[in-house]
């Protein structure tokens, strides 16, 4: 058996499990079943640990045993294609929610997504955001075409459950009693989606909810709409106050370090 065949066989068995193929067993000189199973077991444990590290609140919400089962099912269908194990598991939110989601599944899916985005913001690229005082340097003729892009850490998402409240509750509960953990409130759906922002001002990720009007305006801006155009669009909802409202939001976003002038 050549090297490529050996590696292909070994990897296929590690990813798919089951009985060790005869051809692979014959390639291993040690007591194949016993010793090879160390690698089989290590593969599952390593990826399960990676998921638990990435999704600590989801572990609490599910309970350790149920999370381990969830991870095992996820790992079977999702081999890692990442050089860093830290990048493994992005699809877990969709996997948790499933196709026919219950309220609890929807909450767990959003909880997972929230934790993933927090982690993504954590080590996103460092780029100095545009500051409020930078606006003073913008010439009058540049304002009509003034556009902004998100800083690399900025994540916008909506929730339709109390997932973020559940995350807060879990974090608080673990701080009070890491062993017992928190009491878990029931999953609840909301009538209107709640918009959220995640970003990293310095070294730690932060998040906040935002009013739907502000979220819609920010989404337009992040989609490439010039700021002047946005002001015009806001006239429908804000009338003469549109430029003032837009300026207030822009000042807030720049103060928070969310935007880059493009």
């Amino acid at each position: 058996m050549n090297l490529a065949r050996l590696q292909s066989l070994a990897q296929h068995h590690l990813l798919s499990g089951g009985d060790i193929p005869t051809e692979l067993a014959q390639a291993i000189a040690s007591p194949a079943g016993e010793r090879w199973s160390i690698y089989v077991e290590a593969y599952r444990l390593r990826l399960t640990d990676a998921l638990a590290t990435q999704y600590p609140a989801l572990v609490v919400r599910c309970g350790r045993a149920a999370f381990t089962e969830l991870a095992a099912a996820f790992i079977r269908g999702h081999p890692s294609n990442h050089r860093s194990i830290r990048d493994y598991g992005a699809e877990l939110a969709d996997f948790v929610r499933g196709d026919h989601a219950t309220a609890e599944q929807r909450l767990r899916g959003e909880l997972a997504r929230f934790e993933w985005l927090l982690a993504a913001a954590f080590d996103a690229a460092d780029i100095a955001a545009t500051r409020v005082e930078d606006l003073a340097a913008i010439a009058p003729h540049e304002w009509p075409t003034l556009c902004f892009a998100p800083v690399p850490s900025l994540q916008r998402f909506d929730t339709i459950t109390n997932a973020v409240a559940a995350w807060r509750e879990i974090r608080r509960g673990l701080e009070i009693d890491p062993v017992a953990g928190p009491a878990l409130e029931p999953a609840a759906s909301v009538i209107e989606p709640i918009p959220w922002l995640i970003w990293r001002p310095r070294w730690e990720s932060e998040f906040r909810s935002l009013p739907t009007g502000e979220a819609a305006a920010l989404d337009r801006l992040l989609a490439g709409t010039p700021f002047a155009t946005l002001c015009g669009e806001l006239a429908d909802s804000h009338g003469e106050q549109a430029p003032l409202q837009a300026a207030a939001w822009l000042k807030g976003w720049l103060t928070e370090g969310l935007l880059l002038r493009v």
Binding site: Q11, L14, L15, A27, Y43, A50, S80
Partner: peptide, 14 residues
Amino acid sequence: GTGAHNLHDLMPLP
């Protein structure tokens, strides 16, 4: 690993 996959383990060579 082979192909696009990473086993995140240090597999020995023959």
